[in-house]
Design a protein around this nucleic acid. Structure first.
Lengths: 145, 145
DNA sequence: ATGCATTGAATGCATCTGCATCAACATTGA
DNA sequence: TCAATGTTGATGCAGATGCATTCAATGCAT
């Protein structure tokens, strides 16, 4: 817990210092940019990012407000919608990646050999899976971040 | 990042389900309870918990409001103060530890052998130290959690 | 001693979160 | 067909957080 918060804070701090929006924006833009046609249902974005539903809704709202994404309605399910990344969004995502990658290298990469990184991933993976055993209802699954 | 947020959320979720306050309260009560005479300067608490100053200030405020801790003034430095844990505070800390320990065992302990845990700690330790190299000023050190 | 930077703690304000709920649509099943 | 149930997404509201600033007390250098 201590290490994670230190590293994450350091990375977010670097990003902010470079004048960029929070990491969550990057995550969202990244997921959108690599989606089939640059678009995703909010529900899918939510699942990718491990954040609660209302949080997704508001994140999208902000991205749209900033012109980084746009909503389009879903033809097959009229209560749903698609969120599509704009050119500006793709551009910001790429620019942020510069700072983000540098921060990762500085705070993580430079401190771990490739082999160590692999070992670390393997160990962490054991903690990651099957989190719902506490409660039968999937509704209870905790949101993330 | 993904694993940490999943595990932490699961633990916090279990704690809340058992009717307990957030983990940060536990952390603070724990630090206080193991301090020399059950008391700590806010600044020290801040350093132990890796949270920003204003956050400590408000956390203490809540603990005091709930009768879990009490403020006393510091004789040697009149702008400072001491925060001392109360009996109720010690008791809550102990009761929370029951649920907390169970959650840790469920979400972490049961998924990792002792040897793996040691390896994991060793790997994480390499990421943890020397975080201030980005900026010469210590003021810039990022807060945590 | 006096001016000046530093430290310890609190707080006003804007923003963000979490929770519960809502409204609209979709699906199922009798 | 129609009621019950489930999904999708938004939102009002209370509480939490982050930021910058404040104020008082302290240390320090001249």
């Amino acid at each position: 817990m201590r290490v994670q918060s230190r590293v994450l804070d350091a990375v977010e701090h670097d990003l902010k210092k470079a004048g960029f929006p929070p990491l969550a924006w990057y995550d969202a833009l990244f997921e959108l940019s690599r989606a089939p046609r640059g678009e995703l249902r909010p529900v899918e974005l939510e699942r990718q990012m491990l954040i609660p539903q209302y949080s997704t809704s508001r994140l999208i709202e902000r991205l749209v407000d900033e012109g980084l994404a746009m909503r389009r309605e879903c033809p097959v399910d009229k209560r749903g919608q698609f969120v599509e990344i704009t050119e500006a969004g793709r551009e910001l995502q790429k620019r942020m990646w510069g700072a983000y990658a540098a921060a990762i290298e500085l705070h993580v990469g430079s401190k771990l050999s490739d082999g160590d990184a692999v070992k670390l991933c393997a160990l962490l993976d054991r903690l990651g899976c099957s989190c719902e055993e506490t409660s039968p209802s999937a509704k209870d699954a905790a949101p993330a971040r």
